[in-house]
Amino acid sequence: MVPLETGAIRQALCRITIATRARHVHDVSDEVDRWLAEIGAGEGLLTAFVRHTSCSLTVQENADPSVLADLLDALDRLAPAGAGYRHGSEGPDDMPAHIKTMLTGASIAIPVVGGQMDFGTWQALYLIEHRARGRPRTITLHYLGS
């Protein structure tokens, strides 16, 4: 194992807004990479946190779109609409969206190397919209590193 020399530690914080489409997986990697370049990120850790309870973040394959479609279908099987939930004040997709967020997560930590997210060849950062209608979603980004 070779340790990375990081120099002085600094941090940066911002919020980005993504206009989502209904039941869709949105690749947000380019927006995040642009921000990392703007702040002059080097080596460190990026934390991304989505500020909503009915959408989520994930790192997933970016080569074959059928993977993302299959993941959405699998989440629908795990938390189907109309399953007799008590909570549904915002419609039949409300509680299933909360369950899907709980399963997939509202935050994620990603190493940053050379100013970019340290993804493998076929990985990207995605915002998953679980609701049946798109809306603006806000992601808070926090960078800690050199």
Rank of each mutant, 00 (worst) to 15 (best):
G84W: 04
W122F: 13
G44N: 06
W122A: 06
M117G: 06
P136F: 06
A83Y: 09
G44D: 02
L13R: 13
T121Q: 12
F49C: 07
V28K: 05
S107F: 11
A22D: 13
M102D: 03
D76H: 14
A97L: 03
T140C: 10
H24Y: 15
R15P: 01
I99T: 05
T101K: 12
D30C: 04
V112R: 11
D70Q: 10
D64G: 04
D73H: 13
A81F: 01
G40R: 02
Q116M: 11
S146C: 10
V28A: 09
G134S: 14
H87M: 06
I39F: 12
D73I: 07
Y143L: 02
D118C: 12
G82W: 03
G114W: 07
A63Q: 04
L103S: 04
V112C: 07
V32R: 13
R137C: 03
G114H: 12
P136V: 08
I128V: 15
P80C: 10
A106L: 14
V59S: 06
E90W: 01
L68F: 07
V2T: 11
A97P: 02
L68A: 14
E43Y: 12
A132F: 09
D30V: 12
A22R: 14
G91S: 02
S29Q: 01
H130S: 05
H130A: 09
V25N: 13
R131L: 00
D30G: 07
G145E: 02
E90N: 03
D93T: 02
Y85M: 08
L125K: 11
G44M: 05
R21F: 01
L103K: 08
G88F: 05
S89L: 00
T104S: 09
I110H: 05
L45W: 06
D33S: 15
P136K: 02
E31C: 11
I139T: 00
T140R: 08
A41C: 08
E43A: 10
L78E: 00
M117I: 09
G82F: 06
I39V: 15
R133Q: 14
H87N: 06
V59D: 04
A97G: 01
L127P: 01
E5N: 04
R15Y: 04
I99M: 13
A48V: 04
G7C: 10
E90L: 00
D118V: 03
G7H: 12
L4H: 08
G114V: 05
P3H: 10
H24C: 15
D73G: 13
K100C: 10
L36A: 08
D33Y: 08
H87I: 11
L75F: 14
R137V: 02
C14K: 02
S56G: 15
V67R: 14
R137T: 00
A37C: 00
I108S: 07
L4Q: 11
N62Y: 07
A8E: 15
F119S: 05
G134N: 13
G40T: 02
P3M: 12
Q60C: 07
I139G: 00
H87L: 11
G115P: 04
I128K: 08
T6G: 13
L144D: 01
G82T: 07
R137E: 01
A106F: 13
